[in-house]
Design a protein around this nucleic acid. Structure first.
Length: 924
RNA sequence: GCCUCGGUGGUGGAAUUGGUAUACACGUACGACUCAAAAUCGUAUGCCGCAAGGCUUGAGGGUUCGACUCCCUCCCGAGGCACCA
């Protein structure tokens, strides 16, 4: 038995040598090589590496090393996103300053990162807190300011009482709490530095087409931006004012029977003399602004509102006079803060109209009702049935479910004709089937369609045919039955006025000259008639970037004595963060207390000038770090265009799912803004993105100190070594899926065991190896090459395990051993380097070319294929992959296990897929 | 409610993209070595059955010679959005 390898000794030795040899420094771009820019999210220097960092950095390193061994020049940089609240809070707790705390953390974490043994491009590192980094953050901000991308806005902002600062919309979680501190966010009105991300909304949506990202990330960004295409339409008030509304359904304009303004709408104050119930209106406005802070998120609350007495609006489509309300279900911050309400075709408008007795006027008839259902007879109208049909493709017997059968009003002849027709088509008797509930008609072969519009006057009891039983039920009783198909329930509710609105597109009626037109066509036609404008509106809000905290990039703005903001000119950048500040959070910006900052401002700009005292959101810092990496020593530009041309775009960006609608959206916006200013070469930074999942504790829960299930990577490394930790994380599952994997102590032991066996492979050397071994090696190499490119490191590792299992039994030649070491090198860089040298090599294994498989050696000369009889697996035969059908059939017949299924049978048809399957179909 | 993914042994997960389902690893059981334990090695391990054989990829149906894979309906889970007009 060979000696166990000493992971700690090997790893330390090689890490040191690699660093001395500058093995992983990239230096200047070498255009003889293809480039590969691999990006991972730079960490916040919180003090200690956790297992998530390993998952984030060590696993992609496999891909990085593979690409290097393919001869590519790979940039794999690492840096620190070091501004932010935790440093400030820690500094307060320890009575030190954030810079000291941050820098000592960076020093410590750099060592921990180096213990991973990754091929990081340390010569390209940067940190957001370096002055030569944030100088450029500030300069870009001044460029944005001068080009009206950054502006001093005002409005309602999110105030986090825990962080004592304003935060952006993206940083507020769905439950209304802060993503960082967990505190409940308060709404405050205060002036804010904003970035006009909303100007880029269309491009942020449309350019998603250009990038190779998983659909779920794209979709999350689209939904976050929330583009709605619709129209703006002007309504005239009786006071003479115009109110513009936004609607996505201009086709329903003839059904707009009232109008609603948001309680914050500016026209209210302007028209208060004409509003006869002004006191009541004011009370409602006050109430709703208070309510907004707590109940805005509650979608289920009852709708409230107040009618504006004395004011009416005119529906521009038919010139009808309609009432005007204020209601807090209309948000001031979305669209135009005013809506046309169409109760017949919108759920919210419908419930509001019912409550306040407003007319409900249908203008769009549904074309089809897409529900599954049942057979029901209408009591007062014998022979009148509701039934369900499926709209199926006659050929494939699959397709859309749809088309509701209609009631035939008391006309025996028509009814029986239709039923007959249907029965013939369906080849079943509809009446024979148990009634309410869904039923799949197996032999449907045609598409049937009967309009459902006859239903409007059904107000009756129903006769339910349930097997043999015939029951008479009221609508209420029917709706209570739990075997009623959901879709039929919806229809019945609509028929009985329980829910008499319909939001589907359809065909117009009650709409004068547009009657009979489809919703799609009517949208533009009606907008044109009333002089409206087709437009889009967005959910996305401008990005608020000012923070009332200390440890961040000072906003490089100074105010003249009139209070007008000016950008700090380039020659005064970096506009340094003053140190003479008590930064304990009070809600007031700490920089306001800096004497030095104040004096600096007056000295440079003149008496009466004052500095901006807010700092930038740290998401600003991380919006461009990948540009700095590639040109990290440039003193003339944030990142030279010629360097960008050599390295951008980022070929693959590995990161966490939590950044989907924050960092990933912000940095795309930032890139586009820079692109418009000619500062970058492309307007999308990330060609490809992979979100990874989470590593859970051994108990399957999210790791947390309170649960006591935290895995400390340093501890694991000292137990089994860095190679084992890295490989285990890669082995848990495919990397490119947002799946969460529990840490398994047994699992990591299995990986270490595998490496131990690799370490002992020299005991299995043979002069001439079995051809099966050679073949297995080449097949393994082929699989590694495809799997690594698809980030399927788990199956790549399993292929190598299978190879080791085989050669332990059969032995391998030294040449194959060396090829295998090279194949394993990206996964276990330390051990393979050690074994490589033990095998007598003097260069680094990591400078070797990744093995290339010889396809002719990877082909099997004998394969085992399955043999089926009538589609059932009955045995297997071994034969050459290219034998003829006749030979294969002969071999199959020769096997007794298969023979017995063929006794007394004629062979009708044989399906033979060489190398795959033989299927024998008997003809009797 | 809407959108996007998923659902395969006791567990993490494989499956050449329609062709022998459960690779690899963990776990478990038994055995070997050991005074003993750990470690290591060997054998077995989807389920039912003594066996022959039968069943099995969330449930049901369809297409196909053949379905984890494609189509339809339903159920369950994760993530995102949600009074967004």
């Amino acid at each position: 038995m060979h000696k166990k390898f000493d992971a700690a000794a090997i790893e330390q030795k090689w890490q040191q040598l690699w660093e001395e040899q500058k093995l992983y420094e990239v230096g200047q771009r070498d255009t003889n090589k293809e480039k590969e820019y691999v990006l991972v999210e730079w960490p916040y220097p919180s003090g200690n590496l956790h297992i998530g960092h390993w998952h984030a950095f060590a696993v992609p390193d496999i891909y990085v090393r593979f690409q290097r061994m393919q001869g590519k020049q790979v940039l794999y940089p690492m840096g620190f996103d070091a501004f932010g609240l935790p440093a400030e809070n820690a500094a307060i707790k320890r009575d030190t300053d954030p810079r000291t705390w941050t820098e000592s953390n960076i020093a410590h974490m750099k060592n921990q990162l180096k213990s991973m043994g990754n091929a990081f491009s340390w010569d390209k590192t940067t940190s957001s807190t370096d002055e030569d980094y944030y100088k450029w953050t500030q300069w870009m901000f001044t460029q944005f300011f001068e080009n009206d991308i950054a502006f001093r806005g005002k409005g309602i902002v999110n105030w986090c009482p825990g962080c004592n600062t304003v935060i952006a919309n993206e940083q507020v979680l769905a439950d209304g709490t802060c993503e960082r501190s967990g505190d409940v966010i308060e709404k405050k009105e205060m002036p804010q530095w904003m970035l006009r991300i909303t100007n880029y909304a269309d491009r942020l949506v449309d350019d998603l087409e250009k990038v190779d990202w998983p659909e779920h990330i794209k979709e999350a960004q689209r939904r976050w931006i929330g583009r709605s295409k619709g129209a703006e339409i002007d309504f005239k008030l009786s006071t003479g004012d115009n109110v513009t509304v936004f609607t996505t359904r201009p086709d329903t304009l003839f059904g707009a029977t009232y109008m609603v303004l948001a309680p914050e709408h500016p026209l209210l104050e302007k028209n208060k003399k004409q509003i006869q119930n002004w006191d009541e209106v004011v009370r409602y406005i006050v109430l709703s602004t208070q309510k907004n802070e707590q109940d805005r998120l509650d979608a289920t609350k009852e709708k409230t509102g107040v009618r504006l007495e004395g004011i009416t609006a005119t529906n521009p489509a038919n010139n009808e006079e309609i009432p005007v309300f204020i209601a807090d279900y209309v948000l001031a911050s979305y669209g135009t803060g005013a809506i046309m309400a169409v109760p017949a075709h919108d759920e919210r408008d419908f419930t509001f109209a019912q409550k306040y007795g407003i007319a409900i006027k249908s203008v769009v008839a549904p074309q089809k009702i897409t529900h599954s259902g049942a057979l029901l007879e209408v009591k007062d109208k014998p022979g009148t049935f509701l039934w369900q049909l499926r709209d199926l493709d006659a050929k494939t017997n699959s397709g859309k479910i749809g088309l509701f059968g209609g009631a035939i009003e008391n006309d025996e002849d028509v009814l029986s004709a239709v039923v007959r027709e249907i029965n013939e088509e369906l080849e079943i008797d509809l009446r024979g089937y148990d009634a309410v509930g869904s039923y799949t008609y197996p032999s449907v072969k045609s598409d049937c369609y009967i309009s459902a519009t006859h239903f409007s006057d059904i107000q009756s009891n129903y006769v339910l045919h349930e097997g043999e039983a015939v029951l008479e039920l009221t609508i209420e009783e029917l709706l209570e039955r739990d075997n009623l198909a959901d879709s039929l329930r919806v229809l019945l509710e609509a028929l009985h006025g329980k829910k008499a609105f319909n939001t589907d597109l359809g065909v117009l009626h009650n709409s004068e000259e547009f009657d009979g037109m489809s919703s799609e066509d009517a949208k533009e036609a009606i907008v044109k008639k009333v002089g409206g404008r087709m437009t889009s509106t967005y959910r996305l809000r401008d990005w608020s970037v000012g923070r009332q905290r200390y440890w961040g990039v000072p906003i490089p703005i100074v105010y003249d004595p009139e209070g007008k903001p000016h950008a700090v000119p380039k020659e005064h950048l970096p506009w340094t963060l003053p140190s003479d500040v008590d930064f304990k959070p009070t809600g007031e910006a700490p920089l306001a207390k800096s004497k030095e900052l104040k004096e600096r401002t007056e000295k440079l700009f003149g008496a009466g000038w004052t500095p901006e005292v807010e700092t930038l959101d740290t998401f600003v810092d991380s919006s461009w770090y990948f540009l700095r990496y590639i040109d990290n020593e440039n003193t003339d530009a944030l990142s030279a265009l010629e360097q960008q041309k050599k390295w951008m775009p980022i070929d693959i960006y590995f990161g966490g799912a939590e950044h989907t609608t924050m960092h990933l959206l912000y940095s795309r916006f930032w890139q586009k803004a820079l692109f418009d200013l000619g500062l970058v070469v492309d307007d999308e930074p990330y060609a490809k993105r992979i979100n990874r999942g989470l590593i859970l504790g051994p108990d399957g829960n999210k790791m947390s100190k309170s649960k006591g299930n935290v895995i400390d990577p340093d501890e694991q490394v000292s137990r089994v070594g860095a190679d084992s930790v890295k490989m285990y994380l890669a082995f848990m599952g495919p990397y490119g899926e947002v799946a969460n994997y529990p840490w398994d102590m047994g699992g990591i032991a299995g990986i270490r065991r595998f490496l131990e066996r690799v370490n002992g492979l020299h005991e299995h050397f043979v002069e001439t190896e079995n051809s099966e071994v050679t073949k297995a090696l080449h097949k393994t190499i082929l699989k590694l090459r495809t799997d690594i490119r698809l980030y399927k490191f788990n199956t790549a590792i399993s292929a190598m395990m299978q190879f080791v299992n085989l050669v332990e039994k059969q032995g391998l030649a030294k040449k194959s051993y060396e090829m295998f070491l090279k194949s394993l090198a990206p996964f276990a860089p330390h051990l393979t380097e050690e074994l490589w040298h033990e095998a007598g090599k003097t260069n680094s294994v990591h400078l070797e070319e990744f093995p290339v498989a010889d396809p002719s050696l990877a082909i099997d000369d004998v394969v085992t294929i399955g043999v089926q009889v009538n589609g059932k697996m009955r045995g297997a035969i071994e034969l050459a992959p290219d034998v003829s059908e006749e030979e294969a059939l002969l071999a199959a017949k020769g096997q007794s296990s298969i023979q017995k299924y063929l006794v007394d049978k004629n062979i009708g048809k044989v399906i033979y897929v060489p190398g795959r399957i033989l299927n024998i179909i008997t003809s009797d």
